[in-house]
């Protein structure tokens, strides 16, 4: 059967960029997590396509590792989301800026 790897990779790229747009435009942490999942999935798709192109199982093995990583990332990430919601009463990432540079505040002391 004929098969065009470029088309698959372009689909993977489109899915990846859509995930990226989601990360960039949404402020809600839940949506950001969802978008990260989309990006990971797109990367897995690219791996599988490459494996199919060369007839090797390695692409699928890599997809399995990505899957495992996504699972643990999501579990930890959701725990953090719950904790954030509990302490800050918000899910807006723009509100969570404790790690910014505070030079002005220190110099004013």
């Amino acid at each position: 059967m004929p098969f065009n790897p470029q088309a698959v990779l372009i689909v993977a790229a489109i899915l990846f960029v859509l995930g990226l747009v989601g990360v960039l435009t949404r402020k809600n942490i839940i949506f950001i997590l969802v978008s990260v999942e989309i990006m990971l999935n797109a990367a897995g798709l690219a791996f599988v396509a490459a494996g199919a192109r060369w007839g090797q199982p390695d692409g699928q093995v890599m997809f399995l590792f990505i899957l495992a990583m996504a699972a643990s990332e999501v579990s930890v990430g959701l725990a953090l989301v719950m904790q954030t919601h509990r302490q800050h009463k918000t899910l807006d990432v723009q509100e969570l800026r404790e790690l910014r540079d505070k030079t002005e505040e220190y110099s004013s002391i």
Partner: peptide
């Protein structure tokens, strides 16, 4: 230090 503003989206 203006660029280190703590905003996740800015970093991305």
């Amino acid at each position: 230090s203006f660029s280190q503003n703590g905003s996740l989206r800015w970093y991305v």
